[in-house]
Write a protein that binds this DNA or RNA. Structure first.
Length: 660
RNA sequence: GCCGGCGUAGCUCAAUGGUAGAGCACCGCUCUUGUAAAGCGGAGGUUGUGGGUUCGAGUCCCUCCGCCGGCUCCA
């Protein structure tokens, strides 16, 4: 037997007998062997103890400094969790799946169990203790390759029926004949691996949450108990991670919404029905006014439509009864058929289009509305401003000819990107949502779908966008481009969306007269750069941590007189600022200036104008910024002009401080 | 909707089954203030709702409502 090893630095090692990557690491240096967690052999991640076959191999030793290492560590941590739960709750525990999560903001891994008992977060410390014992025991982890029948027999013996269902699926879907198992002491799991050489390599673990999760993600199947945790190579990294989560929670839109008096959701009004307080409403109005300006520049026409419509309208569009269980129930009207609170604006817009004749010369028609819609989202889904039951879409429907479609789509993408750019939301991904080939939830014929999907694909390619295609993410009437962002805890949400739709125009029998004097059917784009104003602002609150750029700040300047002796001058400063259109608050309380500064700072007011006798004398203000503290005195007029400039520029650079 | 947890003053949180409390905020008074909290006083509660156990329930049990973390859903 002869094994040739090529290392990343080009050097070679050869062996006569059996050899595994761990032996290679040991031969390179004891330090490397100690730090090794896995290996990459011929481009494939594998464990250190995997015996290398005859011949030549590219071998790279993965240490805790490599990106792949964390995934291996957490995967093993999940197995340690399962072993601990088995030790505590006995052989009646069924363990199912337990993947590593390396992209999640909070969680590093989870494991789903079918447990004989109920457990809660209070039970986690005991499980954690057991995990630490398993780690201290440095239990060797061994990979076994077994035939499907052997493996099934083994799991049957252990009473692990879920594992056998998984094996059956592998046999059916991938036609496997053998499966890989990992044995760690008395714990055995089916797993692709790779894993750490022994449990002692799992450095620091922390269990974070208990949750329910349907087996196979299927609502009709059994609800399992999921335990979330995270793991790192050392305690320091774990501690830093936990602190990051703590910090993130402070940015939560629900927390800041209350602290900064932006909005509130009142049980007596109804769950998921946010109300905008004066300060939050400033942000809403600013965003809307800005976008309206951009829409007019791009040839949109604004319309307004009612909040309800007859049931039949939504039958025509297809929204009713398709989404019946996530709509507020229809308003009954005695003998007459009822009305529905509008869950979408498009049916009304379709009727507007149909109300007048259209020539090809009129197209594209770009009809925009800040339309408030109501959807009876499931109670368990509601989440601050981010998932609500009443929200306002910056909606528009563009009706155009097939020839115009591409440039219209490009313009929608440009507008959406502008919105994200100006607000500094650069951490988003683009998802092209397509049909799920196995689902029958879609309306219209396959031909139109294929066409619409290729329209979208073409535009994202042409614009050179980074995107991922996801089957099953389309709307029921057409495919879409979604702009997806994450909230403070790393949960993904769709904001902007651009959808191509050949179906709804057909259902409403929309027509325009072509150059050939014959009727033609327009193509429709549904698009919303913000998506929902509620969700968008929720994300913005978290993005800025409540410290909005000047143009969006509910209060732009707080005027803080040092004593009542300068009350008159402070009043004059405040009036001058307000006259210039600057949102100004005058703090004429009896507090000392330190307290006034503290209060305004905690409200994240971008500019504080401290005024005392010196400033009154010189017609100036002592400026203190949110980011950089005391900036010294400036002439009042100069200050006003600089604020106006900054507001007009929609600059973000003032929001740099970490104070408050 | 499902699984688990939680619900005490406007907010953040205390209170072995035994007289519901603190800080902040609010109101009043004193201080006249110079860059992140002046002092004193006052008011504020059917402990989410409805029921049950108990001599006695914020605390234990059940119902409903709401919130939180997930899952499922998301036009």
């Amino acid at each position: 037997m002869s094994v040739e090893i090529k290392l990343p630095d080009g050097s070679k090692l050869s062996y006569d007998g059996p050899v595994c990557p761990m032996n290679v690491a040991e031969d390179i240096s004891p330090r490397l062997a100690a730090a090794a967690v896995a290996a990459e052999v011929d481009g494939q991640l594998t464990e250190l103890t995997a015996e290398l076959t005859d011949g030549e191999h590219q071998v790279r030793i993965i240490t805790d400094r490599d990106d792949e290492a964390l995934e291996v560590l957490r995967h093993t941590a999940a197995h340690v969790l399962a072993q601990a739960v088995l030790r505590i709750h006995g052989p009646n525990v069924q363990y199912t799946i337990g993947p590593a999560l390396t992209d999640d903001f909070q969680y590093g891994f989870y494991y789903d169990f079918d447990l004989p008992v109920k457990i809660s977060t209070e039970d986690l410390p005991a499980v954690e203790d057991e995990m630490r014992k398993i780690i201290d025991e440095r239990i060797p982890i061994r990979r076994l390759e077994m035939s499907v029948d052997e493996a099934k027999e083994e799991f049957r013996r252990r009473g692990q029926e879920y594992k056998n269902e998984m094996i059956d699926d592998l046999v059916r879907d991938e036609r496997v004949e053998t499966v890989s198992l990992y044995e760690q002491g008395d714990f055995l799991d089916m797993c692709r691996g790779p894993h750490l050489p022994h449990t002692g390599k799992v450095g620091a673990v922390k269990l974070l949450a208990v949750a329910g999760a349907y087996w196979r993600g299927d609502q009709s199947r059994r609800m399992l108990t999921r335990i979330y945790g995270t793991a790192f190579f050392d305690e320091k990294a774990l501690k830093q991670h936990l602190e990051r989560i703590e910090e993130a929670r402070k940015r939560d839109n629900r927390v800041l919404g209350r602290q900064l008096d932006l909005f509130f959701i009142d049980e007596e009004v109804g769950p998921g029905l946010p109300m905008w307080l004066p300060k939050g409403n400033v942000i809403r109005e600013e965003l809307q006014n800005w976008l309206k300006g951009e829409l007019v520049k791009r040839g949109y026409q604004l319309v307004s439509t009612p909040h309800i419509g007859k049931l039949e309208l939504y039958r025509t569009s297809g929204h009713y009864p398709y989404y019946q269980d996530s709509q507020y129930p229809p308003i009954p009207m005695g003998d007459e058929e009822g009305y529905l609170l509008k869950p979408m604006n498009c049916p009304h817009h379709m009727r507007i289009f149909k109300a007048t004749q259209h020539s090809y010369r009129d197209l594209p028609v770009r009809m925009a509305e800040f339309g408030t819609v109501y959807r009876m989202e499931q109670s368990g889904e509601l989440n601050g401003l981010i998932r609500v039951r009443g929200f306002t879409q910056d909606d528009a429907h563009i009706l155009c000819t097939p020839e115009q479609l591409e440039s219209e789509l490009a313009s929608c993408v440009e507008l959406t990107q502008l919105v994200l750019d100006v607000l500094g939301l650069d951490d988003y991904r683009v998802r092209v949502g397509l049909r799920d080939p196995d689902s029958d939830k879609y309306v219209g014929d396959a031909e139109n779908w294929t066409l619409a999907e290729s329209n979208l694909r073409q535009i994202v390619r042409k614009l050179g966008m980074n995107y991922v295609e996801e089957a099953g993410e389309a709307a029921f009437y057409g495919p879409k481009i979604d702009f997806v962002v994450t909230d403070c805890l790393g949960r993904e949400w769709q904001l902007g969306t651009i959808q191509v739709d050949y179906n709804v125009p057909e259902r409403f029998e929309l027509e325009y007269t072509g150059r050939d004097n014959a009727p033609h059917r327009p193509v429709m784009i549904h698009r919303a750069p913000f998506g929902s104003l509620e969700r968008f602002i929720g994300i913005l609150i978290e993005h800025y941590g409540g410290a909005f750029p000047l143009w969006l700040s509910p209060v732009q300047v707080a005027v803080l007189p040092v004593s009542e002796k300068v009350a008159d001058y402070a009043e004059r400063v405040a009036s001058r600022l307000r006259e210039a259109g600057i949102r100004t608050e005058l703090d004429d309380s009896a507090d000392k200036v330190g307290a006034k500064i503290r209060r305004a700072t905690m409200q994240k007011v971008p500019y504080l104008a401290v005024v005392g006798p010196r400033e009154a004398e010189a017609e100036s203000v002592a400026v203190r910024t949110r980011g950089a503290g005391d900036q010294g005195a400036r002439p009042l007029e100069e200050f006003v002009q600089s604020l106006i400039e900054e507001i007009d520029s929609k600059a973000q650079n003032v929001v740099t401080g970490t104070m408050g």
